[in-house]
């Protein structure tokens, strides 16, 4: 088990119903963890529609997770 700190924004925050989580998981990669959360909270976006940031930097979905990582899943952006 590893402990991951999650922050949620925009549509994913609304589906989760809160801003952050301290999450115990056996997921190996950021993509695996997204699938776990997607099932749990019925997130409406597929992995292909989002990006991920790990510890404050854009990262690949197949990045390996370790305890203490700060993970943010990034829905399609719409600034401007």
């Amino acid at each position: 088990m590893k402990n991951i700190h999650l922050q949620y924004f925009a549509i994913l925050r609304e589906f989760r119903g809160q801003n952050e989580d301290s999450w115990e998981t056996t997921a190996a990669t950021a993509g695996d963890l997204y699938e776990e959360l997607k099932t749990e909270f019925k997130f409406p976006l597929t992995q292909k529609q989002i990006r991920v940031a790990i510890n404050g930097e854009f990262s690949a979905m197949d990045s390996l997770l370790k305890t203490g990582d700060e993970v943010v899943y990034i829905p399609p952006v719409a600034g401007g």
Binding site: F9, A10, I11, P44, L45, T46, Q49, A53, V72, I74, P75, P76, V77, A78, G79, G80
Partner: peptide, 28 residues
């Protein structure tokens, strides 16, 4: 900035509905 910076926009419509721009269409 529009395509890369993690900023999201939610529109509140006159009819009381609302939606996240670029997210609602692609949501399953």
């Amino acid at each position: 900035v529009k395509s890369r910076v993690p900023i999201w926009k939610k529109e509140h419509y006159a009819d009381g509905d609302s939606g996240w721009v670029k997210c609602e269409h692609c949501a399953s």
